[in-house]
């Protein structure tokens, strides 16, 4: 049976996380695991178990949407989209934002592409 976490992730990102057999290839290729508190395949595992504590992990916010995992997944799972799903669940909550635009330190120095990317991913 599909649990609530799987259903919500499926709804937002269109990904069926049940297809994952936890081979760990996504985690092996991920460039940002050093900064993560949960490996990408573990994130999938949490969702499969219906454990919503995954929402409070840093990993989805460390994912930079580089799609290395998505390209390499033997089961065709768009892992980057799963991470986006987790971010969206949080961001859609009333008052939630990961980035305060008024607290960007080096705003003068940043090109618009950087500010826009961060604002679009982390504020809503």
């Amino acid at each position: 049976m599909v649990n609530e976490m799987e259903r919500r992730i499926g709804e937002i990102s269109g990904v069926n996380v049940d297809a994952c057999y936890l081979c760990g290839k996504c985690s092996a290729g991920c460039l940002f695991t050093e900064q993560m508190d949960l490996l990408p395949h573990q994130v999938i595992m949490y969702i499969q178990r219906g454990d919503d504590s995954v929402l409070n992990k840093e990993t989805p916010w460390i994912c930079a949407s580089c799609f290395t995992c998505s390209v390499r997944c033997p089961r065709g799972i768009d892992v980057a989209a799963v991470m986006e799903g987790l971010r969206e669940i949080q961001i859609r909550k009333r008052g939630y934002q990961k980035l305060d635009l008024k607290k960007i330190e080096n705003l003068e120095d940043l090109p618009q592409i950087a500010v826009t990317a961060a604002a679009q991913k982390l504020t809503w």
Binding site: L101, I104, L107, V115, A119
Partner: peptide
């Protein structure tokens, strides 16, 4: 330039 405006109003980068 637009960077001057974004300095005061960074939220305009959220326009969808």
């Amino acid at each position: 330039n637009s960077d001057s405006i974004i300095h005061f109003f960074p939220e305009i980068t959220r326009c969808v």
